[in-house]
Amino acid sequence: MSYHEKRAIVNMLSSISITVGYSVYLYFRYLAGGGEFANDPRFWANAFLIFIPISIAANILSSVFFTLHYRITTHDQEPAITDERDKLIELKGNRNALYVFSLGVMLAMVTSALGMPISAMFITIIYSGLLSAVVDELTQFVLYRRGF
């Protein structure tokens, strides 16, 4: 398995674990609040704003740990150059991720239009973000696996 394939898998697992971990933390906060947060936009806006820097920091950390682990286990450096094929693969991954996230945002609007609790809208947005990250990495993994 090449460096890029391994990196795609690590990024995917990292995104899943960060989002699931944060969801569990939010669920316990929700339970501690006696369920009164379900329709409180402030709670969800705060939860969202806190999640963004946490996920960025966690992704940076996982990237650093992956690079160190790769260097130690393979006694090799990560590829020094990013060529045109790498950029095209990244663009295809990003394109697919944007499709998924756009659908997720539309679905979130639908939940709001149907009069569902505001929590449904925010949960849909958070999980469509996760799904789009998974689709991004999965697309890159498949393209690197089969050559292009």
Binding site: S2, H4, P79, I81, D83, E84, R85, D86, Y144, G147, F148
Partner: peptide, 8 residues
């Protein structure tokens, strides 16, 4: 470019 690109 990378060797993988030449292979592809």
């Amino acid at each position: 470019v990378t060797r993988q690109t030449i292979i592809a």
